[in-house]
Protein backbone atom coordinates (compact mmCIF):
# COMPACT_ATOMS: atom_id res chain seq x y z
CA UNK A 1 0.00 0.00 0.00
CA UNK A 2 0.95 3.58 -0.41
CA UNK A 3 0.32 4.28 3.22
CA UNK A 4 3.51 5.26 4.88
CA UNK A 5 3.81 6.44 8.41
CA UNK A 6 5.92 9.56 8.81
CA UNK A 7 8.10 7.48 11.12
CA UNK A 8 8.70 5.05 8.27
CA UNK A 9 10.07 7.72 6.02
CA UNK A 10 13.80 7.22 5.96
CA UNK A 11 15.40 9.86 8.12
CA UNK A 12 17.73 10.75 5.25
CA UNK A 13 14.64 12.01 3.48
CA UNK A 14 14.10 14.70 6.03
CA UNK A 15 17.62 15.74 6.91
CA UNK A 16 18.12 19.44 6.53
CA UNK A 17 20.80 18.84 3.87
CA UNK A 18 18.45 17.23 1.42
CA UNK A 19 16.08 20.08 1.97
CA UNK A 20 18.76 22.71 1.45
CA UNK A 21 19.36 21.28 -1.97
CA UNK A 22 15.72 21.20 -2.89
CA UNK A 23 15.36 24.69 -1.52
CA UNK A 24 18.22 25.96 -3.65
CA UNK A 25 16.63 24.70 -6.82
CA UNK A 26 13.41 26.33 -5.80
CA UNK A 27 15.10 29.60 -4.96
CA UNK A 28 16.97 29.70 -8.24
CA UNK A 29 13.69 29.42 -10.09
CA UNK A 30 12.17 32.13 -7.98
CA UNK A 31 15.20 34.37 -8.40
CA UNK A 32 14.94 34.05 -12.16
CA UNK A 33 11.35 35.14 -11.95
CA UNK A 34 12.20 37.98 -9.64
CA UNK A 35 14.79 39.18 -12.12
CA UNK A 36 12.01 39.65 -14.62
CA UNK A 37 10.09 41.90 -12.30
CA UNK A 38 8.98 45.00 -14.09
CA UNK A 39 8.83 47.45 -11.24
CA UNK A 40 9.28 47.32 -7.51
CA UNK A 41 6.07 47.37 -5.52
CA UNK A 42 4.88 50.67 -4.22
CA UNK A 43 3.59 50.77 -0.67
CA UNK A 44 0.89 53.10 0.45
CA UNK A 45 2.11 53.31 4.03
CA UNK A 46 5.71 54.13 4.83
CA UNK A 47 7.19 51.01 6.32
CA UNK A 48 9.01 50.94 9.60
CA UNK A 49 10.65 47.74 8.41
CA UNK A 50 12.99 47.73 5.48
CA UNK A 51 12.25 44.95 3.10
CA UNK A 52 12.92 43.69 -0.38
CA UNK A 53 9.82 43.89 -2.55
CA UNK A 54 9.03 40.75 -4.49
CA UNK A 55 7.88 40.23 -8.03
CA UNK A 56 4.14 40.52 -8.57
CA UNK A 57 4.16 38.37 -11.65
CA UNK A 58 1.42 35.79 -11.85
CA UNK A 59 2.64 32.33 -11.06
CA UNK A 60 5.08 33.40 -8.41
CA UNK A 61 4.09 31.34 -5.36
CA UNK A 62 5.58 33.98 -3.07
CA UNK A 63 3.29 36.64 -4.32
CA UNK A 64 -0.27 35.93 -5.29
CA UNK A 65 -1.89 38.60 -7.40
CA UNK A 66 -5.35 37.95 -5.92
CA UNK A 67 -7.24 40.83 -4.34
CA UNK A 68 -5.80 41.53 -0.93
CA UNK A 69 -8.02 41.53 2.12
CA UNK A 70 -8.19 45.07 3.52
CA UNK A 71 -5.96 45.71 6.51
CA UNK A 72 -8.99 46.70 8.59
CA UNK A 73 -10.47 43.22 8.15
CA UNK A 74 -7.23 41.29 8.55
CA UNK A 75 -6.54 43.15 11.78
CA UNK A 76 -10.05 42.99 13.23
CA UNK A 77 -11.20 39.48 12.41
CA UNK A 78 -8.86 37.10 14.17
CA UNK A 79 -8.70 33.78 15.91
CA UNK A 80 -6.25 34.33 18.75
CA UNK A 81 -7.86 32.55 21.66
CA UNK A 82 -5.29 33.93 24.08
CA UNK A 83 -7.40 37.10 23.91
CA UNK A 84 -10.88 35.56 23.78
CA UNK A 85 -12.96 33.27 21.62
CA UNK A 86 -14.84 35.88 19.62
CA UNK A 87 -13.24 36.97 16.36
CA UNK A 88 -13.42 40.58 17.50
CA UNK A 89 -11.83 39.91 20.91
CA UNK A 90 -8.18 39.98 19.78
CA UNK A 91 -8.53 43.45 18.24
CA UNK A 92 -10.23 44.65 21.43
CA UNK A 93 -7.91 43.17 24.01
CA UNK A 94 -4.52 42.52 22.45
CA UNK A 95 -3.32 46.05 23.13
CA UNK A 96 -2.68 44.84 26.70
CA UNK A 97 0.23 42.79 25.41
CA UNK A 98 3.79 44.11 25.80
CA UNK A 99 5.94 42.94 22.93
CA UNK A 100 9.11 44.77 23.81
CA UNK A 101 11.49 43.37 25.03
CA UNK A 102 11.00 40.04 23.27
CA UNK A 103 13.17 36.99 22.93
CA UNK A 104 12.91 33.44 21.73
CA UNK A 105 14.23 30.46 23.66
CA UNK A 106 15.83 27.95 21.36
CA UNK A 107 16.09 24.47 22.84
CA UNK A 108 16.46 20.79 22.13
CA UNK A 109 18.38 19.09 19.36
CA UNK A 110 20.34 22.11 18.26
CA UNK A 111 24.00 23.12 18.38
CA UNK A 112 23.33 26.72 19.33
CA UNK A 113 20.61 26.73 21.95
CA UNK A 114 19.95 29.87 23.92
CA UNK A 115 17.85 32.93 24.40
CA UNK A 116 17.82 35.08 21.29
CA UNK A 117 16.70 38.69 21.51
CA UNK A 118 14.33 39.71 18.75
CA UNK A 119 16.55 42.66 17.72
CA UNK A 120 19.47 40.31 17.17
CA UNK A 121 17.35 37.91 15.18
CA UNK A 122 16.13 40.73 12.97
CA UNK A 123 19.69 41.96 12.40
CA UNK A 124 20.66 38.57 11.03
CA UNK A 125 17.98 38.29 8.35
CA UNK A 126 16.59 40.16 5.33
CA UNK A 127 12.96 41.16 5.54
CA UNK A 128 10.98 40.66 2.38
CA UNK A 129 7.36 40.89 1.38
CA UNK A 130 5.24 37.84 0.61
CA UNK A 131 1.59 37.85 -0.38
CA UNK A 132 -0.02 34.60 0.69
CA UNK A 133 -3.45 33.09 0.85
CA UNK A 134 -4.46 32.26 4.40
CA UNK A 135 -7.07 29.51 4.74
CA UNK A 136 -8.68 29.07 8.14
CA UNK A 137 -9.91 25.60 9.10
CA UNK A 138 -13.30 27.26 9.65
CA UNK A 139 -13.74 27.64 5.88
CA UNK A 140 -12.93 31.31 5.45
CA UNK A 141 -9.82 32.77 3.88
CA UNK A 142 -7.90 35.98 3.33
CA UNK A 143 -5.05 37.25 1.16
CA UNK A 144 -2.41 38.97 3.25
CA UNK A 145 0.83 40.78 2.40
CA UNK A 146 3.30 39.68 5.05
CA UNK A 147 6.72 41.04 5.89
CA UNK A 148 9.14 38.44 7.07
CA UNK A 149 11.97 36.08 6.30
CA UNK A 150 12.24 32.35 5.64
CA UNK A 151 12.27 30.31 8.82
CA UNK A 152 15.07 28.29 7.25
CA UNK A 153 17.39 31.29 7.64
CA UNK A 154 17.06 31.02 11.41
CA UNK A 155 17.17 27.27 11.51
CA UNK A 156 20.45 27.28 9.67
CA UNK A 157 21.96 29.77 12.12
CA UNK A 158 20.92 27.65 15.09
CA UNK A 159 22.30 24.48 13.54
CA UNK A 160 19.97 21.63 14.44
CA UNK A 161 21.64 18.29 15.13
CA UNK A 162 20.99 15.25 12.98
CA UNK A 163 18.42 14.13 15.54
CA UNK A 164 16.23 17.14 14.91
CA UNK A 165 13.28 15.82 12.93
CA UNK A 166 10.63 18.24 14.10
CA UNK A 167 10.26 21.74 15.43
CA UNK A 168 7.89 22.71 18.19
CA UNK A 169 6.69 26.29 18.63
CA UNK A 170 5.23 27.84 21.71
CA UNK A 171 3.12 30.99 22.05
CA UNK A 172 3.60 33.32 24.99
CA UNK A 173 1.83 32.33 28.20
CA UNK A 174 1.08 35.50 30.13
CA UNK A 175 -2.41 35.46 31.64
CA UNK A 176 -1.90 38.92 33.14
CA UNK A 177 -1.90 40.36 29.62
CA UNK A 178 -3.78 37.66 27.75
CA UNK A 179 -7.28 37.56 29.15
CA UNK A 180 -8.32 34.46 27.23
CA UNK A 181 -5.75 32.47 29.18
CA UNK A 182 -7.60 33.40 32.37
CA UNK A 183 -10.86 31.84 31.19
CA UNK A 184 -11.88 28.77 33.17
CA UNK A 185 -13.93 27.42 30.25
CA UNK A 186 -11.27 27.33 27.60
CA UNK A 187 -10.72 23.99 25.91
CA UNK A 188 -7.06 24.87 25.38
CA UNK A 189 -4.36 23.79 27.77
CA UNK A 190 -1.99 26.80 27.65
CA UNK A 191 0.55 27.57 26.34
CA UNK A 192 -0.46 27.05 22.72
CA UNK A 193 1.81 24.53 21.02
CA UNK A 194 2.30 23.93 17.32
CA UNK A 195 4.84 22.01 15.29
CA UNK A 196 6.25 21.27 11.87
CA UNK A 197 8.28 18.49 10.38
CA UNK A 198 11.82 19.63 9.67
CA UNK A 199 11.40 19.61 5.89
CA UNK A 200 8.22 21.65 6.21
CA UNK A 201 10.02 24.13 8.41
CA UNK A 202 12.88 24.39 5.93
CA UNK A 203 10.58 24.92 2.97
CA UNK A 204 11.12 28.28 1.28
CA UNK A 205 7.43 29.16 1.56
CA UNK A 206 7.57 28.86 5.36
CA UNK A 207 7.84 32.35 6.70
CA UNK A 208 8.60 33.96 10.04
CA UNK A 209 6.58 37.13 9.89
CA UNK A 210 7.19 40.37 11.77
CA UNK A 211 4.88 42.63 9.80
CA UNK A 212 2.01 42.92 7.39
CA UNK A 213 0.68 45.54 4.99
CA UNK A 214 4.00 47.36 5.13
CA UNK A 215 3.95 47.85 8.89
CA UNK A 216 4.72 46.00 12.06
CA UNK A 217 2.40 43.19 13.07
CA UNK A 218 -0.55 44.38 15.13
CA UNK A 219 -0.63 42.54 18.45
CA UNK A 220 -3.80 40.72 17.48
CA UNK A 221 -2.05 39.26 14.44
CA UNK A 222 0.70 37.68 16.52
CA UNK A 223 3.19 40.43 17.29
CA UNK A 224 6.07 40.66 17.44
CA UNK A 225 6.93 37.49 15.56
CA UNK A 226 4.82 34.66 14.20
CA UNK A 227 4.90 31.77 11.79
CA UNK A 228 3.12 31.74 8.42
CA UNK A 229 2.73 28.39 6.64
CA UNK A 230 0.47 29.18 3.69
CA UNK A 231 -0.40 25.63 2.62
CA UNK A 232 -1.68 24.64 6.06
CA UNK A 233 -4.79 25.69 7.96
CA UNK A 234 -4.31 28.94 9.83
CA UNK A 235 -4.04 27.41 13.29
CA UNK A 236 -0.63 25.97 12.35
CA UNK A 237 0.69 29.51 11.89
CA UNK A 238 1.43 30.05 15.55
CA UNK A 239 1.54 33.59 16.90
CA UNK A 240 3.68 35.57 19.36
CA UNK A 241 6.37 32.90 19.52
CA UNK A 242 8.56 32.67 22.63
CA UNK A 243 10.01 29.20 22.33
CA UNK A 244 11.29 26.99 19.55
CA UNK A 245 12.30 23.45 20.35
CA UNK A 246 14.00 21.02 18.00
CA UNK A 247 12.85 17.48 18.67
CA UNK A 248 13.32 13.96 17.47
CA UNK A 249 9.68 13.01 18.04
CA UNK A 250 6.60 14.62 16.64
CA UNK A 251 5.37 17.32 19.00
CA UNK A 252 1.86 17.04 20.41
CA UNK A 253 0.06 20.17 19.28
CA UNK A 254 -2.63 22.00 21.26
CA UNK A 255 -5.42 21.19 18.83
CA UNK A 256 -4.43 17.55 18.68
CA UNK A 257 -4.84 17.56 22.45
CA UNK A 258 -8.31 19.13 22.26
CA UNK A 259 -9.81 17.16 19.38
CA UNK A 260 -7.40 14.68 17.80
CA UNK A 261 -9.98 13.47 15.32
CA UNK A 262 -10.58 16.96 14.03
CA UNK A 263 -7.17 18.57 13.94
CA UNK A 264 -4.20 16.54 12.88
CA UNK A 265 -0.53 17.33 13.10
CA UNK A 266 -0.24 18.05 9.38
CA UNK A 267 -3.40 20.14 8.88
CA UNK A 268 -2.64 20.66 5.21
CA UNK A 269 -5.36 22.52 3.37
CA UNK A 270 -7.22 19.77 1.55
CA UNK A 271 -10.66 20.17 -0.05
CA UNK A 272 -11.03 16.41 -0.25
CA UNK A 273 -10.71 15.76 3.45
CA UNK A 274 -13.56 17.31 5.41
CA UNK A 275 -13.34 18.48 8.94
CA UNK A 276 -15.61 16.00 10.75
CA UNK A 277 -18.03 18.82 11.44
CA UNK A 278 -18.02 20.76 8.20
CA UNK A 279 -17.03 20.56 4.57
CA UNK A 280 -13.68 21.92 3.42
CA UNK A 281 -14.56 22.04 -0.27
CA UNK A 282 -15.44 25.71 -0.30
CA UNK A 283 -14.28 28.80 1.49
CA UNK A 284 -15.55 32.33 1.93
CA UNK A 285 -12.86 34.71 0.77
CA UNK A 286 -13.08 37.73 3.05
CA UNK A 287 -14.39 40.31 2.95
CA UNK A 288 -17.54 38.54 1.95
CA UNK A 289 -20.98 40.09 1.79
CA UNK A 290 -24.51 38.76 1.83
CA UNK A 291 -25.14 39.75 -1.77
CA UNK A 292 -21.87 38.31 -3.01
CA UNK A 293 -20.69 35.79 -0.42
CA UNK A 294 -17.45 35.28 -2.36
CA UNK A 295 -17.70 31.55 -1.98
CA UNK A 296 -14.84 29.90 -3.85
CA UNK A 297 -13.49 26.40 -4.22
CA UNK A 298 -10.70 25.50 -1.85
CA UNK A 299 -7.52 24.46 -3.63
CA UNK A 300 -5.32 21.51 -2.75
CA UNK A 301 -2.57 22.70 -0.39
CA UNK A 302 -4.26 26.10 -0.62
CA UNK A 303 -2.94 26.50 -4.14
CA UNK A 304 0.68 25.69 -3.25
CA UNK A 305 0.47 22.12 -4.49
CA UNK A 306 3.23 22.49 -7.04
CA UNK A 307 5.63 23.71 -4.36
CA UNK A 308 4.77 21.39 -1.46
CA UNK A 309 3.15 18.19 -2.75
CA UNK A 310 6.60 16.58 -2.88
CA UNK A 311 6.88 16.82 0.90
CA UNK A 312 4.03 14.36 1.27
CA UNK A 313 4.75 11.94 -1.52
CA UNK A 314 3.44 8.49 -0.68
CA UNK A 315 1.60 9.67 2.42
CA UNK A 316 -2.09 8.96 2.83
CA UNK A 317 -3.40 12.48 3.39
CA UNK A 318 -6.75 11.19 4.58
CA UNK A 319 -4.97 9.47 7.40
CA UNK A 320 -2.40 12.18 8.06
CA UNK A 321 -4.79 15.10 8.02
Amino acid sequence: MLIKKPDDIASSEITPEAVYLRRREFMQGAAAMAAMAVAPMAFSAPSPLSHTPVDARAGNPFYTGETQTPFSDASRYNNFYEFGTDKSDPAKYASALTVDPWSIDVEGEVDKPGKYALEDILKSVDIEERVYRLRCVEAWSMVIPWLGFPLSDLIRQWQPTSKAKYIQFETLYRPSEMRGQRSAFSTIDWPYIEGLRMDEAMHPLTLMSVGMYGRELPNQNGAPIRLVVPWKYGFKSVKSIVKIRFTERQPKTSWQGIAPREYGFYANVNPKVDHPRWSQRYERRLPSSLLSPNRIRTQMFNGYEEQVAGLYKGMNLRRYY
Partner: peptide, 13 residues
Amino acid sequence: GAVLGGLGPDPVK
Protein backbone atom coordinates in the same frame (compact mmCIF):
# COMPACT_ATOMS: atom_id res chain seq x y z
CA GLY B 1 -26.80 44.37 10.36
CA ALA B 2 -27.55 42.71 7.03
CA VAL B 3 -28.64 45.86 5.23
CA LEU B 4 -26.46 48.54 6.75
CA GLY B 5 -23.44 46.40 7.42
CA GLY B 6 -21.83 46.08 10.79
CA LEU B 7 -21.73 42.31 10.63
CA GLY B 8 -17.99 42.43 9.90
CA PRO B 9 -15.94 40.89 7.13
CA ASP B 10 -17.70 37.52 7.38
CA PRO B 11 -21.39 38.50 7.57
CA VAL B 12 -22.52 35.00 6.63
CA LYS B 13 -21.01 33.51 9.74
